[in-house]
């Protein structure tokens, strides 16, 4: 089960990874190798077998609606690559490329 270059490009865009041309080439080969291996699960008969998302049999774990202290503005922005007026500064927002 291979993966073509167009799919690599599409997935890279979804994942927001600006990969170079040869990175994409290598990615295509490596993903194909890995997918060839994992595709063996296609041969299993899984009819009537429910998917497992959680292994702990817990249910209804919730917290009471209580307010706890927040970080200060300084703490919140301490690691910001760029900030202005107490806010995180980001380049112009455009729709997904």
């Amino acid at each position: 089960m291979g993966i073509d270059r167009a799919t690599v490009d599409h997935v890279a865009r979804l994942a927001r990874l600006d990969l170079s041309a040869d990175e994409r080439g290598r990615m295509q080969e490596e993903l194909t190798t890995i997918l060839d291996h994992v595709t063996r699960i296609q041969s299993l008969d899984l009819d009537g077998i429910e998917p497992t998302a959680h292994t702990v049999p817990l249910r209804n774990i919730m917290r009471p609606d209580e307010v706890v202290p927040s970080l200060t503005q300084e703490e919140a922005l301490a690691n910001a690559p760029a900030a202005e007026d107490g806010r995180f500064r980001v380049p112009r927002i455009v729709e997904d490329a």
Binding site: S70, G86, R87
Partner: peptide, 15 residues
């Protein structure tokens, strides 16, 4: 547990 409110100083209700 951060408080829900409208407006206020930016980034003062985060964790």
């Amino acid at each position: 547990g951060c408080a829900v409110a409208f407006g206020g100083e930016p980034n003062t209700r985060t964790c």
